[in-house]
C-alpha cells in the first residue's frame, strides 16, 4: 500500500512537472466566425480549446479570437489568416513563431523572469520580434506589412535581416515591392503636416519629397499659401484642373 502511494505521488508529480514544460495554446475567447483548419475543413474554434503547433486559424468579418500562448496573449483580428509555426518551451527558453498570411494580430508578450523569450510574427515580407511588450502587426497583399509597438519596443526586419527598432509613434511599413522599409515617422508626418504633394506623383517624386521635404513641382509661394490656410489665415488659392 505504501509503495503504491509513493508510486502514485511520484507519477502525479512527474505529470505536473512535465506539463509545465509543454507548450500550451488555449483559445481564451472568440467572437463571430473564428475557425481553425482540420484537414481540408474550417471548423469553429471554441473557448477553452487547446491547439497544437501547426494550427491554422482564420477569422471572418467582425470576428476575432484571443489565444493564450504560454501566458502570452494574441488577438487574431477580423479577416485574418495565421499559422502557429513553432511553440516550444524549455526550463530556460520560450520560442514562439507565428506566420501571418493576411489581416492583423495584436500580441502582448510577457516577461517571465529570466526565461529567454523569442516571440516572432512573420509575414511574407517581414518579421517582428518582441519581449515583454505589446504590438500590432498587419499584412495586406498590396500595402505589405505594418508593425506598431503599442508598448515599449519592437524590432521589425525585412527578409534580408535589415532591422529597425520601433517605439512610440514610429511605424514600420514595408511594401512587397520595396527592398527596404519606409521612413518610420511617415505616419506621424502625414498626420502632423499638410500634404502638399500631388497624389498623382510618381514614386520617385514622392521619395524626393520625403527626403527634401519641399515640393519640387511648384514654387515656394504655393507651399506658403497652403500652409497659411492650415493656420487659419486668409489665403489665395489657385486651382488648375487639367484633363
Amino acid at each position: 500500500m505504501k509503495i503504491l502511494t509513493i508510486f502514485i505521488t511520484l507519477l502525479t508529480a512527474l505529470f505536473f512537472s512535465s506539463k509545465a514544460l509543454f507548450a500550451k495554446i488555449v483559445v481564451e475567447s472568440t467572437k463571430g466566425e473564428a475557425s481553425y483548419k482540420a484537414g481540408n475543413q474550417w471548423l469553429p474554434l471554441t473557448k477553452g480549446q487547446q491547439l497544437m503547433e501547426g494550427a491554422k486559424i482564420s477569422t471572418g468579418v467582425k470576428s476575432w479570437a484571443v489565444l493564450d500562448i504560454d501566458g502570452n496573449n494574441v488577438k487574431v483580428e477580423q479577416l485574418t489568416t495565421m499559422k502557429i509555426f513553432k511553440n516550444q518551451i524549455t526550463p530556460d527558453a520560450q520560442n514562439t513563431h507565428i506566420g501571418l498570411k493576411h489581416g492583423s494580430l495584436q500580441a502582448r508578450v510577457s516577461k517571465i523572469g529570466k526565461l529567454k523569450t523569442s516571440f516572432k510574427i512573420s509575414t511574407p515580407v517581414a518579421t517582428s520580434s518582441v519581449r515583454g511588450t505589446e504590438k500590432r502587426n498587419f499584412h495586406g497583399a498590396k500595402s505589405g506589412t505594418s508593425i506598431k509597438a503599442l508598448k515599449e519596443t519592437v524590432v521589425g526586419e525585412n527578409r534580408k535581416g535589415v532591422s529597425n527598432t520601433i517605439r512610440g509613434n514610429s511605424v514600420f511599413r514595408l511594401r512587397p515591392t520595396d527592398p527596404r522599409p519606409q521612413n518610420l515617422l511617415n505616419d506621424s508626418m502625414n498626420r502632423s503636416f499638410t500634404r502638399l504633394q500631388d497624389p498623382n506623383s510618381t514614386r520617385d517624386e514622392k521619395n524626393g519629397l520625403e527626403i527634401n521635404g519641399v515640393n519640387q513641382l511648384g514654387g515656394s509661394s504655393d507651399i506658403d499659401n497652403a500652409t497659411s490656410s492650415q493656420i487659419g489665415g486668409p489665403t489665395k488659392i489657385n486651382i488648375n484642373i487639367n484633363w
Binding site: W64, Q78, S104, G140, A141
Partner: peptide, 20 residues
C-alpha cells in the same frame, strides 16, 4: 484585382465601418 488585394481592401472597409 487580385484576391489578396480584395481581402485587404475589405478589411480596411470593415474597419471603417466599425468592425473589430
Amino acid at each position: 484585382l487580385s484576391g489578396g488585394e480584395l481581402v485587404e481592401i475589405m478589411t480596411k472597409v470593415s474597419e471603417m465601418l466599425g468592425g473589430n
